[in-house]
């Protein structure tokens, strides 16, 4: 295929797309051709899988670089307007190293630009910003009788958004629904019971904020919560905390899920 840029047939054949996949994964396909590949990927799982494999190699290539100057990290840290948040989110492994240790391992070079992302492991904390102090005890706030019916009604509400929170290994899970008015219900809770000195705590992650939605207790069952304005909320997360809950946390997510 030798069409100059801007003159790409709107439909490339499967074979033509396939031939582009390696280059595409290296960001070496441009313009309408790149868009044609992307459209194709939406509907072709086989090509998606191949690109994923090429991307893995491309990401590994990013490791081949030279160390970045120490000042780079300092400047990045300084440009973030708030103190680094301290909640580590999401189903990802524990950081292996602190920022100090990482600093020496930063890599750059244009080759390279990419490679500098080596620091990421320590930066998972970046996923979270400020923490609100809205810790409350939902179990007390909600009359226990009647919750099941309300929760069931919420599940059946066609406007309810679902959220499926899962642990990295998939052995613990929580299913919830959120109504348009912001009322939410954890309708099926499958979390390992904790010792009495600990509690589960539910958090909402909005684009720029982290808010506690409540303390769930050591052996949570169906629970109600309120998101306030649900539109911006993307992810719900449950952590394990000392009994009584905390206003901020350094603990990893036990389960997490994205609102559908």
């Amino acid at each position: 295929m030798n069409a100059p840029e801007g003159d790409v047939p709107s439909r490339l054949s499967h074979a033509e797309i396939e031939a582009l996949l390696g280059s595409y994964a290296l960001d070496a396909v441009d313009g309408p051709e790149a868009e044609a590949v992307e459209l194709h990927l939406l509907e072709c799982p086989r090509c998606r899988a191949e690109v994923a494999q090429h991307r893995e190699v491309a990401a590994l290539l990013g490791n081949v670089g030279t160390p970045a100057p120490d000042r780079l990290w300092d400047r990045i840290a300084a440009s973030l307007e708030e103190a680094p948040p301290d909640l580590r989110l999401a189903a990802v492994p524990e950081p292996r190293r602190g920022p100090k240790a990482i600093r020496g391992r930063l890599r750059v070079g244009l080759a390279a630009t990419a490679a500098a992302a080596a620091v990421v492991i320590g930066l998972l904390a970046f996923q979270v910003n400020r923490l609100d102090n809205r810790v409350n005890n939902l179990a007390q706030a909600t009359p226990e009788h009647g919750l099941s019916q309300v929760a069931t009604a919420a599940v059946l509400d066609p406007q309810a958004r679902r959220v499926d929170l899962r642990s990295p290994q998939g052995n613990q899970s929580v299913q919830g629904v959120v109504l348009p008015n912001g009322n939410g219900y954890l309708v099926k809770v499958d979390l390992r019971p904790l010792p009495a000195r600990q509690t589960y705590q539910l958090w909402a992650v909005t684009g720029s904020r982290q808010v506690s939605l409540g303390v769930l207790g050591a052996d949570p069952q169906q629970t109600a919560f309120s998101l306030g304005s649900p539109s911006g909320v993307g992810t719900l997360v449950v952590t394990v905390e000392p009994a009584g809950g905390v206003t901020s946390t350094t603990n990893p997510a036990v389960v997490s899920g994205v609102l559908s």
Binding site: E56, I76, A115, L124, F126, G207
Partner: peptide, 27 residues
């Protein structure tokens, strides 16, 4: 890094490591 800070939802852990996500973004 600043983009990730402001738009953390762009990263989906289900799709792989944060490291490879950032490497691909940076590239």
């Amino acid at each position: 890094f600043i983009r990730l800070w402001h738009r953390p939802e762009k990263f989906d852990p289900e799709r792989g490591s944060l490291r490879s996500f950032l490497l691909a973004q940076a590239h």
